[in-house]
Amino acid sequence: MRGGRPVFRDVNFRVGRGEALVVEGPNGSGKTSLLRLVAGLLAPAAGAISFSGIADREERGNSVGWLGHHDGAKPQLSPREMLLFFAQLCGGARESIPSLLQLVGLSRAADLPCQYLSAGQKRRLALARLKLCGRPLWLLDEPLAALDAQGKSLLLDLLREHLAAGSIALIATHELLGLQTQRLQLT
């Protein structure tokens, strides 16, 4: 429901282990709303969502790796501090932080406050956070936004690795990913 009117109805899908689902549709078709519903950040007006048998909304959130429109980089904190915080918050391994920063190409900017980072660098930081937390259900909302070609291939590498480990990803995007995925068309 948005402004008292239904955003979509009769949406059904099932994603198995190691599979990805690409959600497509024009602006305003409810891609973000669908991802928020799956994350449990929104309550469905009707219907049910469950992930590996967890139907409770807030409990399901603990399985979700979220990449939204905003990257959540605090302007006052450095990428290293952000990752340290998320490691403590979701129980990721602190030791992996330097290598993660290296992986996403932020080693040199690791101790700079995030306000000096570009949009693409902030997105890379968000990717590092996604891998750090190691959640089994990735929900990526327009993950390619602000990323350059190198950043895009970095995302695809991370995604392939994630799926190969038997995890799941739902991706809302306009662009072609070049991955073997299911597709869900919203109108």
Binding site: A39, E58, G61, G68, H70, G72, A73, F86, L89
Partner: peptide, 16 residues
């Protein structure tokens, strides 16, 4: 709320 961190906190084991 504005920079997206509240979403991430909501999805953490912290709970509201």
């Amino acid at each position: 709320y504005e920079d997206g961190n509240l979403d991430l906190l909501a999805l953490s084991p912290l709970g509201f």
